[in-house]
Amino acid sequence: MMDAGIKKVDLAGHGAAAALERVVAQVGQVILGKTDTIRLALSCLLARGHLLIEDIPGVGKTTLAHTLAKVLGLNFSRIQFTSDLLPADILGVSVYDTDSQSFRFHPGPIFASVVLADEINRATPKAQSALLEAMEENQVTAEGETHALPRPFFVIATQNPRHQIGTFPLPESQLDRFLMRLDVGFPSQEAERKLLRAIDRRMLLESLKPSMDAHRFTSLQRTVDRVVCSDALLDYVQALLNATREAGWLMHGLSPRAGLSLVRAAKAWALLSARELVLPEDVQAVAVAVFGHRLQAANSDGDEGNEMVERLLRSVPIP
C-alpha cells in the first residue's frame, strides 16, 4: 500500500510496525488469503478488545484464534460451549485439600491470555454471562475470593449465525462487549487450491514459532495509545455517530462507547499500517467490524448490519 510519502515514525522506537507486519505474515501462512481479516483481528487485540467471529463452521475460525495466540506467544485455552456448560466449568472451582486442610482454588480454562469461546451461543445465558462478566472485569470472583486474570487477556468468541435452534443468541447489550465482529468468509479460489494441496493446518500450527511474547505485546498495546488522533478526525467520528442517530432507517443511534471503540480500533489499524496518526481511511477500514454488530435496521427486512455501515460511510462526507 502506497502511503503518499507520509512520514513513518516508529513510536515505540523499536520497530513496532515491522514486528506487527511479521505477525501478520506468519498468521497468513496458516490462514491463507485472509490478510484483511487477520489485520482486523490483530487490531482488535492491539486495541485491547474482545473479538467475535461469526461464520459457518469450517472456514477457519478456531484456527485463526489459535494461530494468533501462538504467533503472539500467548497461552491459549479453549472452551467448547455446550448447553450443559456451568459457570464453574469456565471459571474454576474450589476443592477441599486434605493436606492443607483448606479449600484450594483450581483455576478454570478462562485463566489464559487468549480464551477461545467456541460456539458461545450454544451455552445457557448463565454460562455466557460468567464469561462476559470476566471479560468486563478482567477478574474472576469465586467463593468470595477475587482472582485476577492474566494480562493481556482476550476472549475470541465464535458463533454460528445459522442453525439458531436450541441456541441462546447473545443479547444486544452483550454483543456490545465485543470490540469487533468479523466474518471470515470463504477463501478465494487460489487460496483454497493452495489449502487443498498443503498439509493439515493443525500440523502447520504445531511447527509455528512465536514471533513475540506477552510482554512485548503489552508494550505494543501501549504504543497504540500514543497514536495521534486529531480533532479533525474526531469530527469525522462524531459525524458518523450523529448520522446513525439521525437516520430514520436505523432502530437506534450508536452509543458513545461505540464511538470510543471505533477510535481505539482505528488507532490500532493506523499502527498496523505503520502510521503514527489516524486517517479517515483507518476509521473506514475498521468501521464495518466495529459498527456492524451494533446497528439494527428500523424495519426487520432492512439491510444487514455490515451493509448498513457501508451505506452510512457512503452518506457521511469527511469534514
Partner: peptide, 12 residues
C-alpha cells in the same frame, strides 16, 4: 500536497 495535508490536519 497530500502528505502535508495529512500531517497538518490529522497529525496535530
Amino acid at each position: 500536497i497530500i502528505a502535508l495535508y495529512v500531517t497538518l490536519r490529522y497529525g496535530n
